[in-house]
């Protein structure tokens, strides 16, 4: 444990030394901070309507103005970050866990199972993500859970494939062969020996995947197929902003900039993490 903690420290130091990585770290830090302490940061209740002061531009009272219902845009942006992370984190970690399990099974298990799982991965991948999301939403109705499920399902193959490749390479490495010859159980080999070697690579993938997930959540909410109103979400802000685009630019700006900022932050962080954790991965992308 002590060792892995110091390794984590090393990684963070490595990322912070890289200018892009430091930028990513700061942006992501700010977003996470705002999401956790959203309740204390927001100047107004993000869903409280105030019809008298609707569609205002930025002012001292409302930093980013108000929407068509008089809700404070800045408060909705901050609260929207919380929703974005609420979708992105469980979806990414869920996809990572399932992908990892399936990928290791595919890589370590019998050939027919491998083929079957690969076919499964390819099938999911061949659905254009948004089309798949739309189809599912159309079927089971829009909600936060639906979005998490859709996002998770579409990114399982990415993790599964990488976990499989890593397992396949490790499978014939000397230390695994030695363990096997000493009669170690499959669970022990996979859990104790392979997992630590695969998880780092997947964590990098996850960091790079979070922007995609945030964008997808926002996209679905923008189409009115994501989280339900009046829940504040960046996508919902964009949806309102789109319909009012000729009246006020502030809703589109307020919804769009945090998405771009968040994707930038996580991408910088992911890129930098990848260089620190595994320079070889650079080629695979």
């Amino acid at each position: 444990m002590e060792k892995s903690r110091s390794e984590l420290g090393q990684i963070i130091i490595g990322v912070a030394r890289d200018p892009l990585g430091l930028m990513g770290l700061i942006i992501v830090g700010v977003i996470v901070f705002c999401a956790i302490f959203a309740y204390w940061i927001v100047p107004y209740d993000p869903i409280a309507m105030d019809i008298k002061s609707r569609l205002q531009g930025p002012s001292a009272a409302h930093l980013l103005g108000t929407d068509q219902l008089g809700r404070d845009t800045f408060s909705r942006v901050i609260a929207g970050g919380q929703v974005a992370l609420k979708v992105a984190l469980p979806a990414v970690f869920g996809a990572m866990a399932i992908g990892l399990t399936l990928g290791m099974i595919a890589g370590y298990g019998p050939k027919w199972l491998d083929n079957l799982l690969m076919l499964f991965f390819d099938t999911i991948r061949s659905f254009p993500t948004v089309m798949f999301a739309l189809a599912v939403v159309a079927l089971i109705g829009p909600s936060l859970q639906t979005v998490v499920f859709v996002v998770m399902a579409t990114s399982i193959p990415t993790y599964g494939r990488v976990a499989r490749t890593q397992t396949l390479t490790l499978r014939n490495s000397e230390f695994i062969l030695a363990e096997r010859s000493m009669g170690a159980s499959m669970a022990r080999i996979l859990g104790v020996h392979m997992l630590p070697n695969i998880i780092g690579v997947l964590a990098v993938l996850a960091a790079m995947d979070i922007p995609t997930v945030i964008a997808l959540e926002a996209g679905l909410s923008f189409l009115g197929l994501g989280v339900k109103p009046p829940t504040p979400s960046w996508g919902a802000l964009l949806k309102d902003g789109y319909s009012l685009i000729r009246q006020t630019p502030w809703l589109v700006v307020g919804g769009g900039l945090p998405i771009i900022l968040a994707t930038l932050g996580f991408t910088f962080l992911g890129e930098s993490l990848r260089d620190v954790v595994d320079p070889k991965l650079r080629k695979q992308r």
Binding site: A215, G219, I245, R246, P249, V252, I259, I260, T267
Partner: peptide, 23 residues
């Protein structure tokens, strides 16, 4: 390049609409 890779198409579309078409 890194920054461009990160830009989600629909957000870019909305901002482009706002700037180049509406304004």
């Amino acid at each position: 390049s890194v920054s461009f890779v990160a830009a989600p198409a629909f957000v870019v579309a909305l901002l482009a609409l706002l700037v180049f078409a509406v304004h």
